[in-house]
Design a protein around this nucleic acid. Structure first.
Lengths: 112, 112
DNA sequence: TATTATACATAAGAAATTTATGTATATATT
DNA sequence: AATATATACATAAATTTCTTATGTATAATA
């Protein structure tokens, strides 16, 4: 783990985006979903994920709901109202960054 | 300053890419070039830039050459041989990241 | 029955910034 | 002439965000 290149600051945005699309997810599910969607390109470690989820919750962007499945706990997270707004902001920021970086590092194939 | 979103870890790549394109640059010039190329979208602060340049130099990726212009110093940086190789690696990594994130966050290209 | 997968968590340390501050010269503005 | 802005470097404290390591426990698989 920790092999791939995940630029610091992008994890929050990834989590928020997944919750926007999937409505309700638990931590372990998020790690698996990211691995699946990126074909193993990105691997979210637990040491990064759980503190990030706790922070998003503390900041009021996520609500949590504990479920018991069999004998095991799951903590389902979903966007709050303000979380939904912040998701839109962060996605826009990310898009801007991607466009800017694309232009910087590969002017030839710039999207704009 | 510090308003824009510069994901941590991308600054080194930006510096290396600029030096690949421009052969030889000094610090202040880099801050201006980034501002110009990104139309003010990204602003590299001195507190980030100078330590980054020193680290790249310490890691053997950059050579430095001091010049006196008028009565003022300039430190011109350029890629070493190993810096050129590392630039290629970092650019490839960045391209991968941009592609991956584009798929993750861009609704149009979203996989789910 | 031993390993892997599922599912949470935290803590120490590292890396890369931000923010603040400092020094000094050159140029432009009032 | 005085003041502000631009040029050009630098560092240090604090903060953010991650990596790496470790811990607990249940469920499924080889």
């Amino acid at each position: 783990m920790g092999n791939q290149k995940l630029y610091k600051g992008s994890l929050q945005t990834i989590i928020l985006k997944l919750l926007e699309t999937n409505d309700k997810m638990y931590g372990y599910e998020i790690t698996q979903k990211v691995k699946e969607l990126t074909k193993g390109e990105l691997k979210i470690t637990e040491g990064a994920l759980y503190p990030a989820l706790h922070k998003l919750e503390a900041d009021g962007l996520l609500d949590v709901e504990v479920a018991k499945v069999g004998n095991r706990l799951r903590k389902y997270y979903k966007l709050t109202e303000s979380g939904t707004k912040e998701t839109a902001n962060k996605l826009e920021e990310m898009q801007e960054f991607l466009k800017t970086m694309q232009h910087l590092v590969n002017p030839k194939f710039s999207l704009e």
